[in-house]
Nucleic acid binder design. Structure first.
Length: 640
RNA sequence: GCUGCCUUAGCUCAAUCGGUAGAGCAACUGCCUUGUAAGCAGUAGGUUGCCAGUUCGAUUCUGGCAGGCAGCUCCA
């Protein structure tokens, strides 16, 4: 970022001038790129008067704050274009974005339904506005004046925004040509600096984000200073589209969705291997840390869910059924089942902490509109666990769970992990004191493990506060995976107890935790993260044997048997095709290794090995290849 | 669930103005006996998502339903 100091003397000669004037004279090259400035940690328009000597930070498209201003101004230009084409459009809000389907959007009320077919017309009008190079002029007025002004223009949404502001706020407006918008600013100096645009999406958005409110139309767009940058962005989008796990899942034959089961994934043979491999990994890691594993039924009596509070607090996400006039529910969570296992024996303090893991299949009714490949489904398997411990053990157990979680993410190569602390929601049960204690325990453990986190107010589970772990995928999207929750409520509701050293009954505390979260979601993240090129230990098919001609079939079968005996996941391509065709197929399947067998290899009882992403082959005895595979699998290396 | 868009062979996509559908890949069969990213030929594959309506006639127009996509709201 360019920083400039305007000294006492210099300032005197620019006393009545603007930042723009100053830059234009002193730093013409920088002026050409400047969008706005930051002075005394306040963002200002270039047309703002210099208030005094000091540091000026010049905001250009190269800076994050500069881009935000650029895109915010883009939203204004979008609105202006729409107003020109549809004069009865009313505008709500049009901010810049950090993530999502565009750099900016504008929420609009308009009778005409804007469709993608309208985009070219709107884009054309935007280009005209950019070409007109209209200066953006700021003016201020009182809130009362602004209210009257927008009322008279019929901009009812702007009026609503103004009504929510306090009375002594100074209101600023920005005008570009015939279009004027309520806005805090700052903005780029003129529409000529806005560059090239592309509209990317149109959809509905609830007014003020409330589902009870009517819907506005939200038009999304992207913009860049130059055409090249726009094209580069579009190419990146295309790359992301190719990485979509839904597409990879189909191409690699991993999983399937059918009309008969919306949101209920089917695992194909290869996807099942991946699923099972992840389960095995989690099991091993749990065993190392003193967990025991249980399995509980998918369907349990409705009374149980009433007792646990799910019926009261979670009903809209549950599936119900009736058998012999008795109500049943399919489990949306594993905790009540786990509790019944805890209660099956009289527990002693010597049994605690009891770490009870379950790879549990849960069903949750999700609204149809939120389903999204494996990221968002209606039935999924959680790598769940419930830890029953004494109050004294609580913090230590949370700390262990935090480091366990971090270790697992590291294994898969996820570097960026965001942690949140979600506190008591409105719809929840239990005493305020229990919530306080539980939340404090989480905070202490976070501090002790040196975990940076942000607070999500009111986003906890209905029975307790939670730590949420989000990992960042290759497309820089964040996905919630792991969670650690402290629960005083379910032990209370189910009257859980253990016999203490004093021979008396005490109530244990419960920790709910999941690391991968949903195996389905985690698989999807892995697929996008690795672009379908799974590391060897996770690959459904690790090796494919390709014969040069039918002559080598017998030897190829022998090699296949040997590899399978060594528990290598292996397939043989015995089709009557040329080797180049088989290589092409092998590559498309993203299988880690190809073993190529021709006349030479068969004669010498050797194999030729080619690895994914490489052109060269290496000829070796089968045993040597097996050693190499064993070593690589044992490493569970996830760096490609 | 809400708003908008989409649905044609296993997959990716065509089909003019309303005249009952085609291609490539995959599959299958045969030929070639193949040396590192598509060998050649042939065969089969469809109630155009489902149900109504308009029409002499609907893949095409209208309505409803289902599923999908993007976003909103929600979330592991």
């Amino acid at each position: 970022m360019a920083e400039i100091y305007i000294g006492e003397e210099d300032y005197r000669s620019f006393e009545d001038k603007t930042f723009g004037d100053y830059l234009e004279q002193r730093y013409p090259e920088l002026y050409a790129k400047a969008l706005a400035v930051k002075f005394a940690s306040e963002k200002k328009d270039l047309s703002a008067r210099i208030p005094g000597p000091g540091k000026i930070e010049v905001l250009t498209f190269e800076t994050e704050e500069g881009r935000e201003i650029f895109w915010h101004s883009s939203a204004h230009i979008l609105a202006q274009a729409i107003k020109r084409l549809y004069p009865d459009a009313k505008f709500d809000d049009g901010p810049a974005l950090k993530h999502g389907p565009g750099h900016f959007f504008y929420d609009i009320y308009l009778e005409h339904k804007i469709s993608e077919d309208d985009f070219p017309r709107i884009e054309e009008e935007i280009a005209k506005i950019v070409k007109e190079d209209l200066p953006l002029k700021r003016r201020t007025m009182s809130r009362q004046e602004a209210l009257a002004y927008f009322q008279q223009k019929g901009e009812i949404f702007k009026v609503d925004i103004l009504k929510r502001l306090s009375d002594n706020t100074e209101i600023s407006l920005y005008r570009q040509g015939e279009f004027e918008d309520l806005c805090r600013g700052p903005h780029i100096p003129s529409t000529g600096k806005a560059g090239v645009f592309k509209l990317t999406a149109v959809s509905g958005a609830y007014w003020k984000g409330d589902a009870a409110n009517p819907m506005l139309q939200r038009v999304y767009g992207v913009s860049f200073p130059t055409q090249e940058e726009l094209e580069k962005y579009l190419a990146k989008l295309e790359e992301a589209r190719k990485r979509d796990h839904r597409k990879l899942g189909q191409e690699l034959k991993l999983f399937l969705f059918v009309e008969e089961g919306p949101g209920f994934p089917f695992y194909l043979p290869r996807g099942t291997v991946l699923f099972n491999t992840l389960c095995e990994y989690i099991r091993e890691e749990c065993v190392k840390r003193g967990y025991v594993e249980i399995r509980t039924p998918i369907m349990l009596s409705q009374d149980l869910w009433v007792r646990s509070g799910h019926y009261e607090n979670y009903r809209e996400h549950m599936y119900f059924s009736e058998v012999e006039k008795k109500g049943f529910a399919i489990k949306p969570m594993n905790c009540p089942g786990s509790i019944l296992v805890y209660q099956s024996e009289l527990r002693s303090y010597r049994d605690l902490p009891l770490r009870q893991a379950e790879l549990g299949l849960v069903h949750r009714h999700e609204l149809s509109g939120v389903l999204h490949g494996l990221f968002r489904v209606r039935s999924f398997t959680q790598d769940d666990a419930h830890i029953y411990c004494t109050y004294e053990q609580l913090e230590g157990e949370i700390e262990k769970a935090i480091s366990f979680t971090k270790e697992v993410y590291e294994r898969f190569g996820f570097k960026n992990i965001l942690v949140y602390l979600a506190t008591r929601p409105e719809k929840s049960m239990g005493s305020e004191e229990a919530w306080q204690k539980a939340t404090q325990a989480l905070i202490k453990a976070l501090a002790k493990t040196g975990t940076a986190y942000q607070v999500k107010e009111g986003e906890g589970a209905f029975y307790g506060p939670k730590i949420e772990f989000n990992i960042e995928d290759a497309l820089e999207r964040h996905w919630q995976c792991g969670t650690i929750q402290v629960d005083f409520n379910l032990p209370e509701r189910f009257a859980l107890e253990y016999i203490g050293p004093d021979g008396k009954k005490h109530q244990p505390v419960m920790i709910h935790r999941a690391i991968l979260g949903s195996l389905e979601r985690f698989m999807a993240i892995l697929l996008e993260h690795y672009n379908g090129k799974l590391p060897l230990w996770l690959s459904p098919v690790q090796v494919k044997i390709l014969t040069i001609s039918q002559e080598q079939l017998v030897y190829a079968q022998e090699v296949l048997q040997e590899l399978r005996k060594a528990e290598i996941r292996c397939e043989l391509d015995d089709s009557n095709e040329k080797i180049s065709y088989k290589i092409r197929q092998w590559n498309a399947e993203k299988i880690n290794y190809a073993v190529i067998i021709g006349r030479k290899e068969a004669a010498e009882k050797l194999i030729s090995v080619r690895s994914r992403g490489h052109q060269e082959t290496e000829t070796m005895p089968l045993e040597q290849f097996l050693e190499k595979l064993r070593a690589e699998i044992a490493q569970k290396n996830c760096v490609n």
